[in-house]
Design a protein around this nucleic acid. Structure first.
Length: 474
RNA sequence: GGCGCUAUCGUCUAACGGUUAGGACGGAGCCCUCUCAAGGCUUAAAUAGGGGUUCGAUUCCCCUUAGCGCUACCA
């Protein structure tokens, strides 16, 4: 039984890269009928915020994928501490009484790697116990086996066989002097306890994994989970995505706020660092789930293409427009209705009429935001008349013809695209004007725009009553 | 500095050593047309550099270069 986890730490909003990690975990779990665990890695009390936690939930909820089990590391601290002390008792870890970060500077610029504080590692058990009993603060470090030097190995499902010499792995901290576990300890202790079988996470953890393997070997009776590391998402300048440098594009919620369908966003993210290898681009959740595999995951970082002028990746926008025009109207209509409500607009007519309108106009829209903006005339009478539309209305005789058309449509009870077209063409013929002039002027009068769906479709979408009103007042 | 990872069109990517290096977004052009989209068609655009191995390297190996990650009592 496969068990995977997504483990964000609440120190910011839901990052676009985290969102993708969550999605890949979810896809892998669903494909293999496994269990999806959401675990909040909140052991860094200084940096965690409630606002961040809420923001992460908000992002995850928007994605609408769900999870099966939920845990918070801050509620499991005893488990983490127990593991640290078990290792200490077994001699696999030791107390380090060196004040925190005392020698950071030396470590970073030394010749070789910093491995440990030798005096602390060499401290006798009695001496260590005595100083601890005396109340001296200490951190607990893992005792990486030094002699003989050996290679720590693990197979990565994406990056292949990985290996690192113990002589390149430092005695990493397990427990801080304030009693809180470090990430490495808490993460592994929980992975063991929660029986996680697959650890799917960002490639920034690839080098950390050797430490984790050491921990698993020491604490999990030899059970080491499977690892799959994902290439990172980076900015066009090659740097990693950061809020400070790149602004809101790094937050998943930005796409929601820009009118993205969750599925389109998921689809877009999946195509960053993964490929179904058969040229498919637009895919449903079912298709993504069926196609997902680690073989399809790339090893090089993927650029999210955005600029100051255009914060949304053009391909994401294209995918959103594709999904917008292909999801079922039943699914789309409630989402559009909600978007309209957020803009203080409400559809005219009944549900069937609303669906027809949505279905008619969605094909030229790229985001949900286009419904209340570009599509305002379909949901309100106070729409703005654009310059190009004004020009169409100013065509010689156009306004008078529109008023005449309004009168004739008053008698058109059927009011279908065909019947409206018949009336319009008949009028144009009688007055010897090109139908196109009337058609374009109609669209302009009805929507305030020179562009949009077929004019006859527009008539029906606006509705007979409002059509007559709008044509009469030109 | 040490260690690890990576390198195909501008971007996302495909090509189990043999292809005219394929697709998508974006760009350009054409068609369709009541406008705008959509759609269809066409087009420009890539194997970082250098060595090997091989009859043959985008593909395997080495070096260089570049980028990224880790090197915290952050995660």
């Amino acid at each position: 039984m496969i068990r995977a986890r997504f483990a964000p730490s609440p120190t910011g909003y839901l990052h676009i890269g985290s969102a993708r990690t969550f999605i890949f975990n979810w896809l892998y779990v669903r494909k293999n009928n496994g269990t999806m665990v959401l675990r909040i890695d909140d052991t860094d009390v200084d940096r965690n915020t409630e606002a961040s936690l809420n923001s992460i939930y908000e992002g995850l909820n928007w994605l609408d994928l769900g999870w099966d089990e939920f845990y918070r590391q801050s509620e499991r601290l005893d488990l983490h501490r127990k593991l640290a002390y078990d290792l200490l008792a077994k001699g696999l870890a030791y107390r380090d009484f060196t004040p925190a970060a005392q020698d950071l500077e030396e470590r970073a610029h030394g010749e070789g790697p910093w491995l440990c504080n030798p005096e602390m590692r060499a401290l006798s058990r009695e001496e260590s116990d005595r100083r601890a009993a005396a109340g001296e603060p200490f951190a607990i470090r893992f005792r990486v086996e030094r002699d003989p030097v050996r290679a720590v190995k693990f197979p990565d499902q994406v990056y292949g066989e990985q290996s690192k010499l113990t002589s390149d792995i430092e005695d990493f901290a397990l427990l801080r002097s304030n009693g809180m576990p470090t990430y490495h300890l808490a993460s592994c202790a929980d992975d063991i306890d929660l029986k996680i079988t697959h650890i799917i996470r960002g490639q920034d953890h690839l080098s950390n994994t050797f430490k984790h393997v050491l921990l698993f070997e020491a604490a999990a009776d030899g059970f080491v989970p499977n690892f799959a590391h994902l290439p990172l998402l980076i900015a066009p300048d090659g740097a990693k995505l950061s809020k400070r440098k790149h602004g809101p594009v790094v937050s998943a919620l930005t796409y929601r706020d820009n009118g993205f369908l969750p599925l389109a966003y998921i689809n877009f993210l999946c195509l960053l660092g993964w490929s179904p290898k058969d040229n498919r681009e637009q895919m449903t959740l079912e298709e993504l789930t069926a196609a997902f595999s680690f073989e399809g995951v790339n090893r090089s970082n993927a650029v999210v293409n955005f600029s100051d002028a255009d914060p949304i990746d053009p391909k994401a926008l294209w995918l959103n427009s594709q999904h917008l025009r292909t999801v079922s109207v039943e699914t789309l209509a409630p989402i559009v209705r909600k978007t309209l409500e957020e803009h203080k607009l409400a559809p005219y007519g009944d549900e069937a009429f609303f669906r027809h309108v949505v279905d008619t106009i969605r094909s030229r829209y790229a985001t949900l935001l286009d419904f209340p903006t570009k599509g305002r005339a379909y949901f309100a009478d106070d729409f703005h008349i654009e310059k190009q539309a004004e020009d169409k209305l100013n065509a010689p005789g156009a306004r008078e013809l529109l008023r005449e058309l309004a009168k004739r449509l008053a008698a058109n009870v059927e009011f279908t695209e065909a019947s409206v077209e018949a009336d319009l063409r008949k009028l144009a013929e009688e007055r010897s004007v090109k139908a196109g002039v009337l058609i374009n002027a109609s669209r302009a009068a009805l929507t305030g725009q020179s562009v949009g769906p077929s004019a006859f479709a527009v008539f029906v979408c606006i509705g007979r009553e409002r059509v007559i009103e709008r044509l009469s007042r030109v």
